[in-house]
Nucleic acid binder design. Structure first.
Lengths: 197, 197
DNA sequence: AATATAACTGATTAATCAGTCAGCCTATCT
DNA sequence: AGATAGGCTGACTGATTAATCAGTTATATT
């Protein structure tokens, strides 16, 4: 791996676990075994380094989801919805850095006057919402999902997942313990009750 | 109002909007029209000031909820649940600083090795979860709520609200636009479908 | 081998900021 | 009036840190 990639990886971990302000460029350099001036050689400022980190997280998330949906096949919309929820929670555990970073306030503050940052965040959240919406629309077509607003319901499901993951990352409540209840709730909330199978 | 209360109020606003690291004691002092040494006279360190802020937020939240439930009367558990959800969202808009502060990472990081901080956070979140749980249990007794795990369902509802408020505070999606859908979803998810009224 | 370019570094700088301290007001009590 | 004390302040300190720069080493390229 190139030194630049090393730096990006270390910075991702540090920004995610300690936040932007509490991560010094010297720490990033130390973790990669270089001089801090080297970090500035590859990324002209701390903010630019953060943007590169956020962008790589965006690429990672988009890749993971497109890979998952390239392989998996679903019997109907409801199963696709449940599969997506499971995969989201799996990712939140497996790539905890990504979700920790997205639960920091800094990216959203930066997004207010940085277009690149705003676009990265939009891409990430649109990816999430679009997939839930797609599953709901498909489910309404095949009769597995009830008649409801797909976009708004997708947003509500994402809100729930976001909250659960945040509670886990903040050591408030355990996400795993809620998994079964969550799936059951989504079924009750979104499944077509009149369906004859 | 005493100078100490002034300082606490300014610090609440600054910690909530800019975060712990991005708020300087000089800023807090400026906002209250005092010298920064005065802030240190009243609160012996920045961390102690933050703890005082968090504690006052805790008191505020507990007060607001006990006041709301002291006045309101509900026909059944389902109505109490919906009322609580509405009041939570109302508070999140009306006392945005409180929820912004709770959506920062710093309090949870501090809670890891500060007992007072951990207790304040526990009090706040237990207040939320307990009320939702109480409404669900009451609803199961009066037949308005379906048979489901009250504690876990309460946590899921709180997760959803937490997510919605975070999305609003991060300028990602608008909470207000989801309100009707949210109430309808909670009804579909928690209401006893077999109920004869 | 000579040259050019890219990758890297040690030393330094300028700014910011939490926290300290000695002393100054102002109010209350005797 | 004098004494005591609590509230307040300006000036300072030491530590941290983003960013710079002049100069060195490694890697192609001709």
């Amino acid at each position: 791996m190139s030194k630049k990639e090393d730096i990006l990886k270390a910075a991702t971990l540090l920004f995610a676990t300690n936040g932007f302000k509490d991560t010094s460029m010297a720490e990033v350099a130390n973790m990669t075994g270089t001089a801090s001036a080297t970090v500035f050689y590859h990324f002209k400022s701390k903010e630019e380094l953060f943007l590169a980190v956020l962008n790589s997280v965006k690429d990672g998330i988009l890749d993971e989801f497109s890979h998952y949906f390239g392989e998996k096949k679903f019997a109907n919309g409801l199963e696709m919805l449940e599969g997506t929820v499971s995969f989201y929670l799996y990712l939140a555990g497996n790539k905890a850095e990504w979700f920790l970073l997205l639960h920091r306030y800094y990216p959203y503050k930066l997004a207010k006057d940085n277009i690149a940052c705003r676009h990265s965040l939009e891409d990430i959240y649109n990816c999430f919402v679009d997939i839930f919406e797609k599953a709901l629309v498909q489910g309404q077509a095949d009769g597995s999902i009830a008649k409801l607003s797909p976009r708004k319901t997708a947003l509500l499901i994402l809100s729930t997942l976001d909250g659960i993951v945040r509670f886990k990352n903040c050591n408030l409540y355990d996400a795993g313990a809620l998994y079964n209840e969550l799936i059951a709730t989504i079924r009750r909330m979104a499944a077509n009750q009149n369906q004859k199978i």
